[in-house]
Amino acid sequence: MALTKNEIAKRIAQELVNNTYVNLGIGIPTLVANHVPSDINVEFQSENGILGMGPFPIEGKEDADLINAGKQTITSLPGAVLFDSAVSFSMIRGNHIHLSVLGAMQVAENGDIANWKIPGKMVKGMGGAMDLVTSSNNIIVAMTHTNRQGQSKLLKRCTLPITGVSCVKKIVTDLAVIEVTSKGFKLTEVAPGVSEDEIINSTDADLTIDKNLKTMVL
């Protein structure tokens, strides 16, 4: 069975390293915050200007002056800090953020990512994504394996305008965990009940199968 969005987020939460700073993008990445293992301590940065972001507020405590990069109302945890956009992107471009989790429309086997524009159809802009992908030490993509038309989002080359060059390290989809290596995509984990063949057939690029191929544990 293909994973739900929450299960993708849960699998990505297993990648969190203790005592690190993490930026979560809009969409599935935001859900990662709900699945942080109890023995792991991470601080979430939101690029509009907060480090130490907490969960959504309880009803009645929403504050228009406290939002995340998805414009959602949030809370601040004890020890949180606020800053302007230039300081925020100093944290990002200056390599102070350890992990960045982003959504994507396409990822290429060399690690290129596309997630900001479909020419002639959809132009939302890149927001902070271009800064994040060129700078973070570790970039993990959270996305469905195929788009709504059933086409693979993992490709030899991106066909959409790219957001960044050779930056994605790992991709967690509803079907698989795939690492981006110097030799292209490497399948390291399959979702429970999903066959290797199904993943190969859903991927529009060569796939090396890891010797120690595992089934995801969620």
Binding site: P55, F56, P57, I58, E59, E62, A64, D65, I67, G70, K71, Q72, T73, I74
Partner: peptide
Amino acid sequence: EKRIENRTITKA
């Protein structure tokens, strides 16, 4: 007005 674009809450 300080409009909220995306009101999200945690269920108590």
